[in-house]
């Protein structure tokens, strides 16, 4: 469903992604690990269409379409979801109001009828319960005054309501306490489906104990330098990046 080929991206003339390739098939879970500053968030942002990045080479196909040619909202309508590493606080925009508008924008775009108020409320309540989020969060400004962990939980809550086909979750596990990590993992697992894929950016193997990945990739210097299974994450956890990167350089 997603095919990234030799992607090259610069910010302010500085190359960040240097020929990154990655293919994701329906139903797969890919984990991306890598040192700070290696370009993981850059990849996530470029996939979601954040302005400010210059694509200097390569291509990204999503269901055969040129993803890079689409506006951010068009990507969302096509089923892409980005869980932000740093979710934005938007005071004055109500959390559920945003969700309803987002859901209806996609429905309208797909020629479907808008969701009615009762159905929507039911959906939102059900997902809030799944994420063990107090309903008081629903009517607050988007992420306004949320703790770091609450923001991450809100991202996954939004994902469960919007039901994307491809979710790119950027360090959703960072800043979560142990219970919250389980809740978030549970939220993700509840959505696993043969037609739905996940790209999980994470620094910790712990997340992968809860969400079983099909592949683990190591991103360094703007490229995927190693790909393996869950065992690779365990090797990273015990040996750090140095060993794995040296091995990659030798191979």
């Amino acid at each position: 469903m997603l095919k990234i080929d030799d992607l090259r991206v610069s910010v302010d003339g500085k190359p960040i992604l240097n020929g990154l390739s990655l293919a994701v098939q329906p139903g797969e879970v890919h984990a991306i690990m890598g040192p700070n500053g290696s370009g993981k968030s850059t990849l996530a942002h470029v996939l979601a269409g954040r302005p400010g990045y210059e694509v200097t080479g390569g291509s990204v196909q999503y269901h055969g379409q040129d993803l890079l040619d689409m506006e951010p909202e068009e990507r969302a309508w096509a089923g892409l979801f980005l869980g932000f590493q740093y979710p934005v606080e938007i005071p004055g925009v109500n959390n559920v109001y945003l969700l309803k508008a987002a859901l209806n924008a996609r429905r309208r775009h797909r020629g479907e009828e808008e969701i009615n108020a009762i159905e929507f409320l039911k959906l939102v309540r059900e997902k809030a319960a799944l994420m063990q989020m107090d309903e008081s969060f629903l009517n607050r400004g988007v992420n306004e005054g949320f703790s770091g962990g609450e923001k991450k939980r809100n991202e996954i809550f939004q994902m469960t309501v919007l039901e994307p086909e491809l979710a790119v979750l950027d360090e959703t596990d960072s800043g979560l306490d142990i219970d919250a990590l389980k809740i978030v993992a549970n939220g993700v697992n509840s959505m696993r489906d043969p037609a739905r894929s996940f790209v999980l950016v994470t620094h910790y193997q712990r997340l992968l104990d809860y969400i079983e990945p099909d592949y683990v990739h190591v991103l360094a210097d703007g490229r995927i330098v190693r790909t393996g299974d869950k065992g690779l994450a365990e090797a990273l956890e015990s040996g750090g990046y140095d060993g794995v990167l040296a091995e990659a350089a030798n191979s």
Partner: peptide, 24 residues
């Protein structure tokens, strides 16, 4: 700009996202 991108990434068309932020 961050808020605008956040809203668009959720599927709000640019004009709708802008109007939502202005209202806020």
């Amino acid at each position: 700009a961050n808020a605008l991108f956040y809203l668009r990434s959720r599927g709000l068309a640019e004009a709708q996202a802008r109007s939502m932020l202005v209202n806020a």
